[in-house]
């Protein structure tokens, strides 16, 4: 299934009306050892690019933005006590939450993997 990426280094994988969200391998690597993930409340609704969650590492505290608009329907509770899973597998088992999305067309504001890789090369 195809991943789309934001300029703020979130990824989203869309399946029907649901979207799984996380941070990219690049972002996890840049943050260094991740020590805390503030998961969003289930039921919270967010607009595309609004603050969705927060993440802290040995280096910095950062916000995670919603790559698409939607309502939070599930969160990855494993991360509460094992945030290091994001370092180990940012784009698979280190997912942050699942959104129920209203407008799949919003992916036009995101990059596919090839474009994201090109974008990373410019940073």
């Amino acid at each position: 299934m195809e991943y789309f990426f934001s300029k703020e280094h979130e990824w989203v994988k869309i399946s029907g009306t649901t979207a799984t969200v996380g941070i990219s391998d690049h972002a996890a690597h840049e943050l260094g050892d991740i020590t805390f993930v503030e998961l969003p409340q289930v039921g919270k609704t967010v607009k595309q690019f609004d603050t969705l969650a927060a993440i802290e590492s040995v280096k910095a505290a950062s916000d995670i933005y919603a790559p698409v608009s939607g309502k939070v329907i599930a969160v990855n509770e494993t991360l509460e006590n094992a945030p290091e899973v994001v370092n180990e597998s940012a784009e698979e088992s280190g997912w942050i939450c699942v959104l129920e999305i209203s407008d799949p067309a919003e992916v036009k504001n995101l990059m596919n993997r090839a474009s994201y890789d090109e974008y990373l090369a410019t940073l």
């Binding site: 020590t35 805390f36 802290e56 040995v58 505290a61």
Partner: peptide, 12 residues
């Protein structure tokens, strides 16, 4: 003053 945080958050 030394303090402990009630979560995994880092004071800085």
């Amino acid at each position: 003053v030394p303090f402990r945080v009630a979560s995994r958050r880092s004071p800085r």
